[in-house]
Structure formats: structure tokens, C-alpha cells
Simulated assay, not measured.
Amino acid sequence: MGKAKPAKHTAAEIKAKVHAATTNMGGGKAGLQDRKGGAVGHAKYKCPICMTAAPDLKSMQLHWENKHPKLPFNESACENLHAKVGGVTTAGVAVQGSKKKKQSDA
């Protein structure tokens, strides 16, 4: 057999294509909104003490028990970021910051 490309796609190639199709790598305004994460995106609650973001109250409670064990947990003190920005969430499927592209001299 020669050095021809195989007829079937490899698992790594398919995984790379799925990753490229479902991850927002973006620059620009849409990418900026995604990269902000907690302010407008996936995380819903913000810890009033250390400003750590969490996606739900259960995760925030676990954070609180691990990081602030001497203080009682008060879920009303945790800021709901989605309500603050009008329920807007990120437009992208997944969030990943932009990567610098290598420029060729050609």
C-alpha cells in the first residue's frame, strides 16, 4: 500500500472537527461577551465575599462550605448575575478565549 490518505476518518480527526464546530474561539464583540463569562454568561451566581462565580446555588453552597466555613451560608446574599443583566446568556456553544494565530511570511 502507498502513502495515500486512509478512506476513513480517525477518531482524533472527528473529535477535532467537533471541537472546532462547537467552541466559540471568537474575537470581536460576540467573543468578548463569551470571554466575560461570569458577568454575562454561564455562571449565574457570584459570591459576595470573594466574587467567585458559580453556575447554580448548590455549587455556590459547596464553594461557601469549602472557602468560608466560619460564616453561615445565605443564598439571598449571592448575586444573581443573570437577573442583573436581564437574563442574557452567552450566544456561543462553549467558551474559549482567542488564540494567537501564527502568521506566515508567504
Rank of each mutant, 00 (worst) to 15 (best):
Glu13Ala: 11
Leu32Phe: 15
Trp64Phe: 14
Glu75Gln: 15
Pro69Asp: 05
Lys67Asn: 14
Thr10Ala: 09
His42Arg: 14
Ala4Ser: 04
Lys58Val: 12
Pro55Gln: 00
Leu62Ala: 15
Lys17Arg: 14
Glu65Phe: 14
Gly28Ile: 12
Thr23Asp: 01
Asp105Thr: 07
Gly86Ala: 02
Met25Val: 02
Ala53His: 13
Ala11Ser: 02
Lys15Leu: 10
Gly41Ser: 07
Ile14Pro: 00
Lys8Gly: 08
Phe73Arg: 01
Leu62Asn: 15
Met60Asp: 05
Lys101Thr: 10
Ala11Lys: 08
Asp56Trp: 03
Ser59Thr: 12
His42Pro: 04
His19Ile: 13
Ala43Leu: 14
Ala94Trp: 06
Ala91Asp: 11
Asp105His: 06
Thr89His: 02
Met25Lys: 07
Glu79Leu: 14
Asn66Ile: 04
Lys8Trp: 06
Asp56Asn: 12
Thr10Pro: 01
Asn66Thr: 11
Glu75Trp: 10
Ile49Gln: 13
Glu75Arg: 13
Glu65Gln: 15
Ala12Thr: 10
Ser59Leu: 03
Ala20Asn: 06
Thr52Asn: 11
Ala54Gln: 10
Ala21Lys: 07
Asn80Arg: 04
Lys15Ala: 12
Ser59Gly: 04
Phe73Leu: 07
Lys84Ala: 07
Thr52Leu: 09
Asn24Ala: 11
Gly28Ala: 04
Lys5Ala: 12
Ala7Trp: 06
Lys29Trp: 15
Ser76Tyr: 12
Trp64His: 15
Gln103Arg: 13
Pro69Arg: 02
Ala106Cys: 02
Leu57Lys: 05
Met1Ser: 10
Thr52Cys: 10
Ala91Tyr: 03
His63Cys: 05
Leu71Glu: 14
Ile14Tyr: 01
Val93Trp: 05
Asp34Lys: 03
Gly38Val: 04
Lys100Thr: 15
Ala43Gln: 08
Ala39Gln: 09
Pro6Leu: 07
Lys17Asp: 14
Met1Leu: 07
Ala20Phe: 06
Gly31Trp: 08
Thr89Asn: 04
Pro72Arg: 02
Thr22Asp: 04
Leu62Ser: 14
Ala4Glu: 05
Ser59Tyr: 03
Ala7Ile: 09
Lys102Tyr: 06
Gly2Met: 00
Lys17Gln: 14
Tyr45Asp: 00
Leu32Ile: 13
Thr10Cys: 01
Ala94Val: 00
Thr23Lys: 03
Asn66Gly: 15
His63Phe: 05
Leu81Pro: 00
Ala106Asp: 10
Lys70Tyr: 08
Lys8Thr: 11
